[in-house]
Design a protein around this nucleic acid. Structure first.
Lengths: 251, 251
DNA sequence: CACCCAAATGGCACTCAGTACCCTCGATTA
DNA sequence: TAATCGAGGGTACTGAGTGCCATTTGGGTG
């Protein structure tokens, strides 16, 4: 998943990149509403019709990578081991989204400031976030179907995970992208998992069942501690690595 | 707060009521997107300009009473006793919103079916719900400022309350407005209050505390392809593995 | 090289939401 | 009666988004 705006890329930028770059330049220097589609496409030097081939609406150009990120997240959830803790998996899925933001802090902060002051963008962001939340809730519902209140719990936990995620993320964005997002996210998600873990989960390093060895990852019993060895080609999709290593780590 | 559409009201309907009535008639018989503002105002027998005097957008006519309901809720929260339990107050505030829906089940069900199948309306509803959630979060933050994690907790609890509210409400709406909403709402909100009760289920060995220094990853150039070797203790939190391996994988 | 095909792009015209501005009408009041 | 004021109506405009068709581009293939 290349950076949102292909800075430092000496190859000819794609149409998407040109449009995003032109749009953000204008949005930042004169505002979202004060910028028309015609302004964007004329700065990018492309036809007006092309804009709507790449972005269904003016708002979508502000979130150019969310469609792919959502797909990545659903793939991650689908590939999650059925015997793992669904809440933990949901948290890990939300960390996947955080990665996208953290990959380009400057861009993320610019976008945050934009969406904060443009009501139309805030509304659009809500519908984006809503899709993540639905994906999490669906996963939790499927994996927690044995509970009597499974559907309710799924909705509530998904909302809580998203809220914690947004809290940590926005605190970081408000601070201009300075500081340790990961740590803040860990704390926020930890708060959620603590609230929704009726049975205190086994502490890390539990001498549990032997790990199932996958094609890529395997557990090995060392002298005094078990370790996991993972081999993966460079460029392997992260979710695939995660899936393979997750079982071996034994939760 | 009078019913949304003044049925059985023998006085001359106000402009608002005429517009809402005409709009819903057309939305239900030919769909939201297939209905233009001109259609609505000509059916209502008023000028086109008048529509936008009463509703800032076409979507707003579908939620004619939310502005007042939100004001009612914020007033309720502001008037809540300072020594009460903020979470309980937030739940009660959400019950206030439920009352608005339950006051006119037919209208609520019609609107639900409409918003479910029109993306634009769903997006608009999200921004409406978002304002309720912000109001709850603000209240929780103000009333729970003594906690260290007050702001995080406020966001998470507000999201959980709203999610529980929506779960119960939508289940009822999906069933056509039949059954006891109040009971379902009590159960849903009870689930949230239990999860965030003043005495949390203190879980020893909390999963939030990350194990230190457990994973390491490095990229190695092989004969014909690069591979990544990962070593990790069993039980290492998955997110930590992800963090360590993602750099090595080189995107 | 000529040709062709398919995808990508550009151009044009159109619908419709939303806004700015001004007009009319009727009721109240100085 | 004149001045005022508020509710509503009318007109024209901007700009987002769409459908349709022409044009270009970049391979293959004879």
């Amino acid at each position: 998943m290349a950076a949102a705006v292909g800075i430092g890329d000496d190859t000819k930028p794609t149409m998407r990149e040109s449009l995003v770059r032109a749009a953000f330049q204008l949005f930042l220097e004169r505002g979202f509403e004060q910028t028309t589609i015609d302004d964007i496409v004329s700065l990018a030097g492309v036809g007006r019709r092309s804009f709507f081939r790449y972005f269904p609406s003016k708002e979508d150009v502000v979130f150019p990578d969310h469609e792919g990120c959502l797909a990545e997240m659903t793939a991650f959830l689908r590939a999650a081991p059925p015997d793992g803790d669904p809440v933990t998996q949901a948290c890990d899925a939300s960390r996947l989204v955080l990665r996208m933001y953290a990959a380009d802090p400057v861009f993320s902060v610019q976008r945050y400031r934009l969406t904060r002051q443009v009501p139309g963008l805030r509304a659009h962001e809500l519908s984006v976030v809503w899709r993540y939340e639905r994906a999490l809730a669906e996963h939790l519902r499927e994996r927690g179907a044995e509970r009597a209140d499974g559907a309710l719990r799924a909705d509530v936990v998904a909302a809580a995970v998203v809220a914690a995620h947004n809290h940590a993320l926005r605190t970081w964005l408000r601070a201009g992208g300075e500081g340790d997002v990961q740590a803040a996210m860990d704390e926020a998600l930890g708060y959620v998992t603590r609230a929704f873990s009726p049975t205190p989960p086994a502490s890390p390093g539990s001498p549990g069942s032997p790990a199932r060895s996958t094609a890529a990852a395997a557990a090995v019993d060392g002298e005094d501690e078990q370790v996991v060895v993972l081999l993966a080609r460079k460029g392997t999709p992260l979710w695939r690595v995660v899936r393979d290593v997750e079982g071996a780590l034994g939760e």
